[in-house]
Computed example of a mutant assay.
Amino acid sequence: MSTSPTILIVPGLRDHVEEHWQTILERKLPKACSVAPLEHDKLSCAARIEALQQAIAKIDGPLVLVAHSGGVMIAVHWAQKYDRPIQGALLAAPADLESPLPAGYPTLDALRDNGWLPVPRSRLPFPSIVAASTNDPLADLERVKQYAADWGSELVDIGAVGHLNPAAGFGEWPQAEELLGRLV
């Protein structure tokens, strides 16, 4: 008899947003938890990777990651540094941190200075699904397709859903559970 995996939510740079689909999913699933928000060094990629590692270290048994936006980049950076077995990862709406982001987001210089660049491009050591929006203001679809190919991820076109966040009209995102089912 196999043990059902723990679902670990990896939020993006805005951390925990009450009405975000990840927060709703965490409340809904029985074996779900989230990476704790950072109090300091919020833009530090290294601090984010270590926060993810601390959360993972507390989990015994099978584990599935559910990352969104900058959280996707945290997960792929983590995979370059650590080798704990991961059953799978749902990587939703990855932000393209290698291209200028809209106003209100970190600049390329700030991202570079804080360790986010370059974005890791090697194959992930676990199965993964990249859920890509066709009209994401934080990532061109062609760039996301290239990330998915580089990471060895299955690409799933989730349509014109913006950045898949409350600003784009997404609180609950039922398709997340469907895609998770394919990894579990």
Rank of each mutant, 00 (worst) to 15 (best):
M1S: 14
S2E: 09
T3P: 05
T3W: 11
T3R: 13
P5M: 00
P5C: 00
I7F: 14
I9M: 14
P11T: 06
R14K: 10
V17H: 07
E19M: 02
Q22Y: 11
I24N: 01
I24L: 14
I24T: 09
I24W: 10
L25V: 07
K28Q: 15
K28T: 12
L29G: 05
K31S: 14
C33R: 15
S34A: 15
S34N: 11
A36S: 15
P37L: 08
L38Y: 06
E39H: 09
D41R: 11
K42S: 09
L43Q: 10
L43E: 10
L43K: 09
A46F: 02
R48E: 04
R48W: 12
I49G: 02
I49M: 06
E50K: 11
A51F: 08
A51L: 03
Q54E: 14
A55T: 03
I56S: 05
I59Q: 09
I59D: 13
I59H: 11
D60M: 03
V64I: 15
G70R: 01
G70V: 01
G70L: 05
G71K: 06
V72N: 07
V72T: 08
V72I: 02
M73Q: 15
M73T: 11
M73W: 01
A75L: 04
A75G: 01
V76G: 04
V76F: 01
H77E: 08
H77S: 07
H77M: 01
W78N: 05
Q80G: 06
K81L: 08
Y82M: 07
Q87Y: 11
Q87C: 07
G88N: 07
L91A: 04
A92L: 11
A92W: 03
A93C: 13
A95N: 05
L97F: 11
L97I: 14
E98K: 00
E98W: 04
S99D: 02
P100R: 06
P102W: 13
P102I: 12
A103D: 15
T107K: 08
T107I: 08
L108E: 03
L111M: 09
L111W: 03
L111N: 01
D113I: 02
D113G: 01
D113S: 08
W116Y: 10
P118W: 12
S122E: 12
R123A: 07
L124Q: 08
S128I: 05
V130N: 07
V130H: 09
S133R: 01
N135Q: 09
D136P: 05
D136Q: 05
A139R: 02
E142Y: 04
R143W: 07
K145T: 10
K145D: 11
K145E: 15
A148Q: 09
A148T: 05
D150S: 13
D150R: 12
G152D: 12
S153Y: 06
L155V: 04
L155T: 12
V156Y: 10
V156S: 04
V156Q: 09
D157Q: 03
A160N: 08
A160D: 13
H163K: 04
P166C: 12
A167K: 10
A168G: 05
G169M: 06
W173L: 10
W173Q: 07
P174E: 15
P174V: 11
E178F: 10
E178C: 03
L180H: 12
R182V: 00
R182N: 14
R182F: 11
L183A: 09
L183M: 12
